[in-house]
Design a protein around this nucleic acid. Sequence first.
DNA 1: TCTCTAAAGTTTTTT
DNA 2: ACTTTAGAGA
Length: 934
Amino acid sequence: MTTYTPRQAEAIACLREPLQIIACAGSGKTQVISQRIASILAQPDVEPKNIIAFTFTEKAAAELRERILSILEKEDFDTLGLAEMYVGTMHGYTLDLLQRLVPETFKFSVLTEITSRMLVDRSSRKSGLTGCPTSSSGTPYLHRFLHSRLFLQAMSVLREDTVDWDQVPAGVVSAFESYTRLLYEHAYFDFTEMINLAVQLLEDGDDDQSARVVRQHVRNDVRYVVVDEYQDVNPLQERLVRGLTQFGANLCVVGDDDQTIYQWRGSEVSNIVTFKDRYPGVRQVTLGENFRSSEGVVEVGRSVAERIPEDSRLPKAMVRAGHQKWQRGDMIARAFGDEISEAAWICDRLEAMRGLAFSDTAEADPRGLSWSDFAVLFRSVANDAGPLVEEMRSRDIPYVVKGLNRLFDSPEIQAVVGVFRYMAGLISVADLRRLWDLASLLPVNAGWAEALAVLDEGRDFYRGQRWGVYNIQRLYLEFMEVLGLREETVPGDPVRRELVFYQLGKFSQAISDFEQIYFNTDPLQKYEAFAAWLEHQARRYYAESDGDVGYATPDAVVLTTVHQAKGMQWPAVFLPCLRANRFPAKRQGGLGLFHVIPEVAIGEADRYKGTLDDETRLFYVAVTRAQKYLFVSFSPGPNRLYRRRSAFFDHCAAQQWFSTRDNGVPTDAPRLEPRARVDIPSVTLSFSELKYLFECPYQFKLRFLYGFNPPIHEALGYGKGLHDALAEVHKRAITGDLTSSQEAESLVTRHLHTPYAYPELKATLHRAAVQAVQRYLREHETDLERTVHSEKQIQVHVAPGVTVDGRIDLVRRLDTDELAIVDFKSTARAQDEDVTRDQLHVYAVGYEELTGQRADLIEVLNLDEEGKTIREEVEDPLLIAVRARIKEAGDSLRENNLPRLPAWGEQCGKCDLAELCRDVPPSAKSERRAATGR
DNA sequence: TCTCTAAAGTTTTTT
DNA sequence: ACTTTAGAGA
């Protein structure tokens, strides 16, 4: 049983008035939030669906969810309905809210930073980009490609910030209008727009139909809102919080103003600083006890925070409360003459400290420090980490770098990029061959000539075929297939093979991103645009190491940025390269936000500039990551801007806790066998991921770990549209509004979105969808009123760390009064029946966990004319078996044990990626060509 | 202490 | 592509 300090207990027990928890670094914040949510749930009249908990990242959400579940399980709490408690990001919440309650948005899809930029560049006039004026004399208007990033930043700020529209130039206003119009025309949300739309609906009166439904739901169901990392909330997100609590829901915000490090992305510190003045009757609880670090680390952290002017901080004093002891020599500040000796010193230290005895908690037995207990934090990994990486490589110290290697720098990807430079006519066959030899990518018996033939056929743009035929993804996969390039044919050892395939998979992902926007473009232009995009833009966006292959965390020293280290801790932390103009960083030049939107139009515009205070907060975060050992160091950088010491370095060196000389690790210091801290990574699987994992583990690996995507199909969106139309029908049925078959046409018009179809196909699909919906409404006219749930969110916690979540299409009562779980399928080419049955049994397990009710039957209802319906009983042995299979799947995933099927099987015939895995037997070839259109 | 010129340029979540 | 900074020269 966890014991809590009086302050922590006060926060946990405070459930009535608005609560602000000011949580210093290492104060056990997540535990307190989790326990508080458990006490909310313990109240007799509260249901899980009454609770919303916001985190900033998905990772933080997963952690919080796991923590809450473990508390509830320990307290033997009834977890009925728990899937309906929302724990996640604001983006996820608003998207879910809209796509559950506002039928017009069902068909919307989400643009990423990459795809929104492509959209803006592709439609540079319609998006408002090239009509957007600036205040710089050299650049009266923004340019295509060059300024799309800046343009999108301005478009976000206009919605996320408090804007005085009278101060915004008319040209910028009309560019903004063009941009939002373009989004809605294409049924896209960017990351800001989903929150923006939800906020509009929450703030609107009840006269708009959608607003009424959304507000009604919030009024009835939302009773507790918790916001973690409140210091990073921007003004729009603050409005969302306001909107959700406007009908009296309790609000609890948690954060630390000293750890505001994303202000350049819009977070507004004043939200947290003035919270008490903006909400009535706020109870403030300060968690000042730091359980993480030694007194030396805590005191230095406090002194850094005190460099921030008092009037922009909440008053607080962090004190040490943990068991770590400070000893002279634990903290060292050293300056070096050059980068090489600084890197060498860090490596000496790492080697000398490995094996030192260390206790994670007061109770735990000490263990020897291992590689993964050390972190090196940089202000800029991309600019400063080079020399240290070099040194660690030469000494064979295991490490992982986050943010140094760009995917497109590797010779392997340059070889692949060459393929598309060849396609665009920029290089010759000989150049291409040279690139592939240089990357040593060619398999032993590579079919080079055949592969070139594939390219040349693809390059014949005047065959008069439909544009959709010139599919980049298909060409890429076919090129690899014909070349015979598979994971086991990549030259080199298995480690290299895996890495190369991971890179090739990421490239496939990049193609998908591109084709999502450029699918309907004249083929020649499309290939030219792709080559140009690869050359100029793609390289900035795709980092080689941002997804590690597999879920296992290696025992290695972590090299990362301070930003990415937020929320983490290590026994020993190094902060090297503390140079003036780098940390604190100097402001960047160039055309900036204020050339588009004048400073006076934005409240608190300073935060977009990156001030000294912001850098100080970042340094505070860096320092407080250390549990015991902290090493700050300086060496002059390669050019004259970085020759002087950082003020932060001098600050540390002046503190008594630091030694300025290294006397080495004391020879009598206790040592133990190095043993890494064991983290069991938690795995959350969606239904579709689970489906692939059951079907073929290697297919799962190719798709989700490497990132290979099948080519875009022109009819994409048909199944989703049908699905959404029926979802609306059933949701209305629950409220007693039964849809007649005359409405099929308008339902399909609202929900069917087939952006990749050529006009004739579009019309065909529309007709087919209307017929399918009519047929469904006719055949199920009388069932509609027996609809129990539509799109029911479920979640199954299979074992510690293994969760499956997904949605059940429909739950309804049959004439026989039995309860049936229904899943819709819309393609005649239905999946393997075994998998469908497994999947449905997962639904049954989830439904039982959610409602405590047992479903009697599971049904697969095919919406196609000749499609058959599968119906079968829910049986206990199957439920138990499915649970065991999920757990097994989760375990093999964590062990990265994802083998191919032993031989070509029926599933392989339906797998789009089979050729990347093994030879297709001659008997399967013709059938396959028919099925995949190749 | 002022003025001019050359040289340099970060961090990154969100389905 | 433009603003900040260091350092030279006045």
